[in-house]
C-alpha cells in the first residue's frame, strides 16, 4: 500500500506541471515586479537600474496617494457593508419561507462580468435617460446629480454598484457558516428562554467569527484590488477622482508605457494587501479570544 501511494515519480508527475506553471506565471512575476520597480523602463527599450527612485517618487506622488485613499474608502465601506449582509443572513437563517430562493436571487449579480455590470450601471446612472434619475425626478427631485460625472458622487455611485455585485456572495458565505451551527445549541438556548436577538448575538456570531474574519479580509483585500468595474465605469474619472491603486498602476504601465513605475505601484499594491491581511488577522485574533472565554 505505502509503496504504491508514495511513489515519488508519480507524485512528481502529478504535481510538477501545475507547480511549474504557477512558478512561471505567479511566483516569479511577483518577485520580478519588485525588481522591475527598481528600473527606469518604458517597456520597449533597455532597462536602466535607478535604485529606489520609483519607490521614493511614489511616496510623494499625489495621484498615487489619492488613488490609495479611494481604494481604502472602498475597503472601509465594503467591510462596513458586511454588517448588513450578516444581518440579512441571520434573518434568512430563521424559518423564512422561500429563503433558498431569496439567497439565489441575491447572488445573481455576482455571476455577471464586471464589464457587463459596469456598462449596465453606466446606463442606470445616465443623467438623462437612466433609471435612477428618472425615478428621482418622478419622486420630485428637480435636478438629480450626474452621478458618474461629478467628483462628489462618483465614489458613492461606484460603491453602490459594488454592493449590488457582491451582496449575494457574502450572504451565501454567511448562510453556509450559519447552517454549520449544530441546531442542538440553538434549541438549548431557546429552552433557556433566550430571545432570537440574544441567540444571534451571543451564540451564532461568536461561532462563525472565523468566517467573519475571512470575509473582512476578502472585502478589504478585494477592495484594494478593485479594477475592472471602475476601469470600465469611469476610467478613474472624472479628472482622476475615482482613480484606485490598480487603475493607476494599469494606466502608468499599459497606458503611458511607464513599466518601471507601474511595476513599483504593483509591488506597493502587493505589500498593502499583505500588510492589511496581516493586521486584520492580528486584530481579529485578540477579539476572538475575548469572545470565547
Amino acid at each position: 500500500m505505502d509503496k504504491v501511494m508514495s511513489n515519488k515519480k508519480v507524485i512528481a508527475l502529478y504535481v510538477l506541471p501545475s507547480l511549474i506553471l504557477l512558478a512561471g506565471l505567479v511566483y516569479i512575476p511577483i518577485i520580478l515586479t519588485g525588481y522591475y520597480g527598481l528600473m527606469d523602463w518604458n517597456g520597449i527599450g533597455p532597462m536602466t537600474f535607478i535604485g529606489l527612485e520609483n519607490y521614493i517618487k511614489l511616496l510623494s506622488d499625489a495621484t498615487f496617494w489619492y488613488s490609495a485613499r479611494n481604494s481604502f474608502f472602498l475597503a472601509f465601506f465594503s467591510s462596513a457593508a458586511l454588517i448588513v449582509y450578516l444581518a440579512v443572513s441571520l434573518v434568512l437563517a430563521a424559518k423564512i419561507k422561500g429563503r433558498e430562493t431569496l439567497r439565489k436571487i441575491y447572488l445573481i449579480p455576482m455571476l455577471l462580468s464586471s464589464v457587463a455590470i459596469a456598462q449596465l450601471w453606466i446606463k442606470i446612472y445616465d443623467p438623462n435617460n437612466g433609471m435612477l434619475n428618472s425615478l428621482l425626478k418622478t419622486l420630485g427631485v428637480e435636478s438629480p446629480p450626474a452621478w458618474l460625472a461629478q467628483r462628489e458622487t462618483v465614489l458613492i455611485a461606484i460603491f453602490i454598484a459594488i454592493v449590488w455585485q457582491y451582496a449575494g456572495f457574502y450572504i451565501i458565505i454567511y448562510s453556509a457558516a450559519l447552517k454549520g451551527i449544530p441546531s442542538s445549541l440553538i434549541e438549548a438556548a431557546e429552552i433557556d428562554g433566550a430571545t432570537p436577538l440574544q441567540i444571534a448575538y451571543k451564540i451564532k456570531l461568536p461561532l462563525i467569527s472565523g468566517v467573519i474574519k475571512t470575509t473582512i479580509v476578502l472585502a478589504i483585500v478585494g477592495s484594494l484590488k478593485y479594477f475592472d468595474l471602475i476601469y470600465v465605469m469611469t476610467g478613474g474619472g472624472p479628472n482622476g477622482s475615482s482613480e484606485v491603486i490598480a487603475s493607476y498602476m494599469y494606466k502608468q504601465a499599459f497606458g503611458i508605457n511607464n513599466f518601471g513605475y507601474g511595476s513599483a505601484i504593483g509591488f506597493m499594491l502587493l505589500l498593502l494587501a499583505l500588510t492589511t491581511t496581516f493586521i486584520i488577522q492580528k486584530i481579529t485574533a485578540s477579539k476572538n479570544d475575548n469572545l470565547q472565554y
Binding site: G24, V26, I28, P29, T33, Y36, F227, Y250, F254, G266
Partner: peptide, 17 residues
C-alpha cells in the same frame, strides 16, 4: 499563496514573459 495575489502585482512581468 497564489490565492491572495493581486493580479496587478504580476501583470507587467507576465506581459514581458
Amino acid at each position: 499563496i497564489g490565492y491572495m495575489i493581486p493580479i496587478h502585482s504580476t501583470l507587467v512581468p507576465l506581459f514581458q514573459f
